Amino acid sequence: MDSPYQAAADVHVLPANLALPGVGVLPINAYVITAEEPVLVDTGLGVDADDFVDALSAIVDPGRLRWIWLTHDDADHTGNIERVMELAPRARLVTHGYAALRMSTWWPLPMDRVHAIRFGDDLDVGDRTLTAVAPPLFDNPMSTGLLDRSTGDLFSVDAFGAIIPEPTQSASDVPPEALAGGMLGWATSDSPWVHLTEPAAFGQVLDRVRQIQPRRIFSSHLPAADGTALEDFLAVLQQVPSAEHFVPPNSDEFAQMVTALTEMQRAGVPVPRTEAAPQPASPAEAAPRG
């Protein structure tokens, strides 16, 4: 896990970065919204358990958490859900109802603490209202983003994620061409279903995001971004339906990636202990699912 940073007066980022040798890194973010009733958005990687809890505790006492908004039940979002819920006995789990049911198959999720939510629903967290929104791209049908009505901050789940050259705390630090290529590569691998859509129909989906006019964009897989970048981001996503399809690694390519990761570890380069990814020829071919 990397060092937490404050992306806005009331938003803290709990970041990790998955190293992709020869390509770059994939950010993996959880967030804390310091509302009157504090909200944790996702729970990081399980392999970062101690560091994650320490980072969270430095921002807010887990005992004060009132809400844990789980955007979906993939492993890179649920890594510390059990531990956090134990440390936050007052917190309720806000998530898609079916995500809660699916999670109950692998841990004894206390269903009486689940606040099921669907697109358009509002959540009152004391000093503001959070609205559940549909992300334009997703790898999990349970994916539920949120819009902070008081600030205009959009938490977009996997949408607008990107493989970037190196870790950073602001998407504006990434060279535009690298960011566009990394975002296209991530989108084609994480949401391959979009190739089946008609570009015009998908454009209507993007228009709904455009109408939100977010002040800031907080993706699960991108450094914090200013809302002024939205049009550039949407222009990249508009290309996805007709973009080249992602091809996953074969056995030999995967073995090469594992070897590269091992060499990085021996050299003392921090490498998140999670699934390895292929070593593609270009960012547009890169990206593990998450």
Rank of each mutant, 00 (worst) to 15 (best):
P280M: 03
D73N: 15
G290V: 08
R273T: 15
A58W: 09
T43Y: 05
A243E: 05
Q211A: 14
R90M: 08
P283Y: 13
Q213H: 08
F155Y: 13
A159N: 03
S172T: 11
R273I: 13
T129I: 15
G203V: 07
P62K: 02
A159F: 04
F138L: 03
H96M: 04
A260N: 04
G268F: 10
E86V: 14
V125R: 02
V60D: 03
D48H: 15
A229I: 04
I33H: 01
T262F: 09
M103G: 11
A255D: 13
Q239T: 14
D48V: 09
G79V: 06
S156A: 09
A8P: 01
V247H: 15
V209F: 06
H245M: 10
D124L: 08
L147M: 14
A58M: 12
R92G: 07
T188K: 11
V157L: 02
M257I: 00
P21F: 09
W186L: 04
G97W: 02
P165L: 13
G22Y: 13
V53H: 09
L18F: 00
L237C: 00
P27N: 04
H195G: 03
P214S: 02
A116F: 07
T188V: 15
A99L: 11
Y5A: 00
A277V: 09
A255R: 13
D76N: 15
H195V: 01
A88S: 14
P192A: 10
P288C: 06
S3Q: 12
P15K: 06
V41D: 01
S251Y: 05
D190L: 12
A224G: 07
F218H: 02
P135Y: 05
R216N: 03
V174F: 06
L93A: 07
Q279T: 14
A30V: 12
D2C: 04
I81D: 04
L45V: 07
F218W: 12
L230M: 10
V209Y: 02
G290T: 07
L146Q: 01
D207R: 14
G79Y: 03
F246Q: 08
T228P: 00
W106R: 15
D48R: 10
R273L: 15
E37V: 11
A132D: 04
H195Y: 05
G268D: 06
T129F: 12
P192W: 05
L137V: 14
A178P: 08
A178Y: 08
F218Q: 00
D112K: 15
P278K: 09
V32L: 04
E253L: 04
F246D: 02
A19P: 02
D207K: 13
M85T: 08
A162G: 11
H96D: 14
Q256R: 15
V194L: 09
S143I: 01
A267P: 05
V25L: 10
P167Y: 11
N80D: 08
T71Q: 14
W106P: 00
W193T: 06
Q204Y: 12
E244G: 10
P4I: 03
F119V: 15
A75T: 06
L154D: 06
P38H: 02
A58H: 10
T259V: 04
P270W: 08
R64F: 07
V269K: 13
L20P: 08
W67E: 01
M257Q: 12
P165I: 12
A7I: 00
M264N: 05
